[in-house]
Nucleic acid binder design. Structure first.
Lengths: 146, 146
DNA sequence: CGGGATCCTACGGGATACTG
DNA sequence: CAGTATCCCGTAGGATCCCG
């Protein structure tokens, strides 16, 4: 890890804690593969946004949910919700009334995933301008190089 | 948040910390949109896996990296690396020798994102069997219902 | 209201071949 | 070795219509 020489000590500490939290999965390579499969499933744009909305709002009906998650089509909302339900992240309660009323909320598992993702959200919020500057710099260089 | 009534207190505490960490982004709706765009960019399967590998391994050459990130095509590796470089997550060092030698490592920004994602990895490793059981249960019900 | 069923298209992404 | 360029296919995912 000599490559990390020019990071701050705080950053290195975080990296170490990061690395040390992973090993258990590496004992059996199949486990690692399964974890990656699971990550791939869950690290989906819509999954993350639905997860975030439900974690913030608590419990929502289908249409209400679609209003919070801007830009999602009803097809993707349904599809993603079904997958999340299958994975045990979400519970769907159907009230037998007309017009139908269906409410979605996170399970304990889903809630824990939500708080696990929290760090990513905070990172995004904190480093938004940082990323934008990096992009402008990169695009500027690319143009100059052509 | 009455919907959370049947969670453990620990889970509720986590949810509260979660929710309280988000608000700053909601002040200006445009910020929220930008954060979501950024999340969409970064919550990509390959981005996450490359990020993880570089956080663990420190610094790697192109081919070496492709060995760690199982299943990735060289096209996607190049593409994802370029995007990450553009976003300021990764630094690419080109050594002017033959054969070419190009090394990739995380920037401080990338490293921080890596540690932010750490929670998700831990969650995945911890709850793998939980998810699998939920899937079997769900699939069983689906079959019974048909 | 909350979806399911269809249709259709754009594009993600793999395989292969070529280059400095 | 580290890409770039080309071709090509599958499917993610939007639009639309319908139904209980």
């Amino acid at each position: 890890m000599r490559a990390l020489a020019n990071f701050t000590t705080a950053e290195i500490e975080r990296a170490k804690r990061y690395a040390s939290a992973i090993p258990p999965a590496d004992l059996d390579p199949r486990i690692g593969a399964l974890v990656n499969e699971l990550i791939g499933r869950v690290a989906d744009k819509w999954t993350m946004m639905i997860l975030e909305t439900l974690a913030e709002q608590g419990e929502l009906r289908f249409t209400r949910l679609s209003e919070f998650v801007k830009g999602i089509s009803q097809k993707m909302l349904t599809q993603t919700l079904r997958n999340m339900e299958r994975d045990g992240l979400v519970i769907c309660t159907v009230h037998p009334v007309v017009p139908p009323k269906v409410e979605y909320r996170l399970t304990g598992l889903g809630l824990r995933l939500g708080s696990a993702f929290c760090g990513v959200w905070v990172w995004a919020a904190e480093n938004l301008d940082h990323v934008e500057k990096a992009r402008q710099l990169f695009d500027g260089k690319a143009k100059a190089g052509s």
